Simulated assay, not measured.
Amino acid sequence: MKHTARMTTAARLGRWLGGVWGGCLRAERRTHRWLMAQGLPAGGARVLIWVIKLAILGVLLYVAVWAALLLVAVVVAARMAEQTPEGDDDFDLQFPASLDELRQTPGYDPNLYNDTSHEMYSEDD
């Protein structure tokens, strides 16, 4: 019985990348021939193709830098969000619990709290 070896994922990926690379080279040669058919000298066509390649590379690098900066900003924001402030975790706002405590706070105005039993309450409409 003959045992056939299966193609690995890495080999499949390599073949696919090789096919993509070969397709790009064929498209480049076709573009070079078309430019020469339009009357551009061979050297000028080669330079124009390199300028286009460098422009595409520049755009890709520009996008990569902004994507990296965005990723760094997201990571920094996540780290800041996960950190809790140091100190007392049982922080209360300490509102007065009763009417007597409320009356003893500085700047108490019975008209604001509709405290009719207070001696400074006035019924001005």
Rank of each mutant, 00 (worst) to 15 (best):
M1E: 07
K2N: 11
A5L: 08
R6K: 11
R6Y: 15
M7F: 14
T8M: 00
A11R: 12
R12V: 07
R12N: 10
R12A: 09
L13F: 05
G14F: 01
G14R: 13
R15V: 01
R15P: 02
R15W: 06
W16V: 15
W16Y: 14
W16R: 11
L17C: 14
G18Q: 02
G18W: 01
G18R: 01
G19H: 07
V20C: 09
W21T: 09
G22A: 11
G22E: 06
G23D: 14
C24W: 14
L25N: 09
L25P: 03
E28N: 10
E28G: 07
R29A: 14
R29T: 10
R30L: 14
T31L: 13
L35D: 02
L35G: 00
M36K: 07
A37W: 13
G39A: 04
G39F: 11
G39Y: 08
G39T: 05
L40W: 05
L40V: 06
L40N: 00
P41I: 07
P41A: 15
G43E: 15
G44H: 06
A45I: 01
A45G: 06
V51K: 05
G58H: 03
G58D: 08
G58F: 01
V59M: 04
L60E: 13
L60T: 03
Y62A: 08
V63L: 02
V65K: 02
W66M: 10
A67Y: 02
A67C: 03
A68G: 06
A68K: 12
L69A: 10
L70V: 08
V72E: 06
A73P: 02
A78H: 11
A78W: 10
A78K: 13
E82W: 06
E82F: 01
T84A: 05
G87C: 01
G87R: 01
D88V: 01
D90V: 09
D90H: 08
D90G: 03
F91W: 03
D92I: 00
D92W: 10
L93I: 04
Q94L: 09
Q94V: 05
F95Y: 07
P96W: 01
P96Y: 01
A97E: 12
E101C: 03
E101F: 00
L102V: 03
R103E: 00
Q104N: 05
P106R: 12
P106S: 14
P106E: 09
G107F: 10
Y108R: 08
D109T: 10
N111K: 12
L112D: 09
Y113V: 15
Y113T: 13
Y113H: 13
Y113D: 15
N114C: 12
S117F: 12
S117G: 09
S117D: 04
H118Q: 02
E119T: 13
M120W: 14
S122M: 15
S122I: 10
E123S: 14
E123K: 12
D124E: 15
D124V: 13
